[in-house]
């Protein structure tokens, strides 16, 4: 019983962190039908940005409550800057091109960003220890122990997802985003500039990835250039599982993936060795019976 509870918490923490990346995937797909495989790398550069500011610019004795916000702001700034640059230089010229072109470009950008960080960031050819910008202890709830960084992730990730959901539902820009998602041509007739909406989507997704990167770094205390790819795959899977285009779906999908990975490692046949297998088995199973994912709308053919 206590093991079950512990595994559930383990899974939720992992899921919450993946969820922050999944939000970016789901928004971009919802609005431009672009699978931005470089989004994982946007997350990764955020982590390196935070690492840089903490180790190179902040005095070593900076208290965590100062360091953490500074790192978050930096990570968000770096992630957003990279995402905007990628959108401008790689995706915008391809707008209106065949759907495969941006997809292949996304893969290229993903490799490019990994290589650039690997080659130019000092020490990034190997895993780097991430600064521990949060109280190091853990919360003990009966039989369950959670690191405070895990508690933070569990609190912040769903909160940000909810805030994003509200923003998209209530704000003027959110309305423009939804209009562009539903019918880009008519949205233009409403005076909505699709380029601005797409850029805003990249910015929002990157900002969440930047926050996610810091939470990830302080929780696992190590980063490397491959974290974007590894977690990006899970985040993309989460977005598909939850219903790509759906914000709540992405978070739900990510939490499900975290739970399955952790519970399958404990209870399923084959143990931790096969936990990935169970994650993707879940994906296949859900897609077989509900191709649109948990909360997605069935794909409509546009007039």
């Amino acid at each position: 019983m206590s093991t079950l509870a512990q595994q559930i918490v383990n899974g939720l923490v992992l899921g919450a962190l993946i969820g922050l990346i999944a939000l970016g995937y789901t928004m971009l797909y919802g609005i431009v039908q672009l699978i931005n495989f470089a989004h994982g790398e946007v997350f990764m550069v955020g982590a390196f940005g935070a690492h840089f500011v903490s180790l190179r610019l902040l005095p070593a004795d900076t208290p965590w409550y100062t360091a953490l916000p500074v790192m978050c702001v930096t990570a968000v700034a770096v992630s957003v800057a990279v995402a905007v640059a990628v959108e401008r230089l790689a995706y915008r010229p391809l707008r209106g091109a065949h759907k495969l072109a941006p997809l292949i470009t996304a893969l290229g950008v993903s490799i490019l960003l990994q290589e650039v960080v690997r080659v130019f960031y000092p020490g990034a050819t190997a895993p780097l220890a991430f600064p521990r910008a949060f109280p190091d202890g853990h919360l003990v709830l009966g039989p369950v122990t959670v690191l405070w960084t895990g508690v933070l992730a569990l609190a912040v990730a769903p909160l940000l997802a909810a805030a994003l959901h509200l923003y998209v539902e209530r704000s003027r820009l959110g309305r423009a985003m939804r209009a562009t998602a539903q019918d880009p041509e008519t949205a233009r007739l409403m005076g909505i500039d699709p380029d601005r909406v797409i850029l805003a989507t990249f910015v929002l997704g990157a900002a969440l990835a930047g926050v996610g990167a810091v939470l990830y770094g302080i929780h696992y205390t190590q980063i490397d250039t491959a974290i974007g790819f590894q977690n990006g795959i899970f985040a993309f899977t989460a977005a598909v599982l939850g219903g790509i285009g759906s914000i709540r779906g992405a978070m739900l999908g990510a939490l499900s993936i975290g739970l399955v990975k952790s519970l399958a490692g404990q209870y399923a046949w084959g143990g931790a060795q096969y936990d990935y297998v169970w994650v993707f088995a879940l994906l296949i199973l859900v897609l077989m019976f509900r191709p649109q994912g948990f909360l997605g709308r069935p794909e409509r053919v546009r007039a």
Partner: peptide, 8 residues
């Protein structure tokens, strides 16, 4: 064809 935002 009116092209309303049907989901809104």
């Amino acid at each position: 064809g009116r092209r309303l935002f049907a989901g809104m």
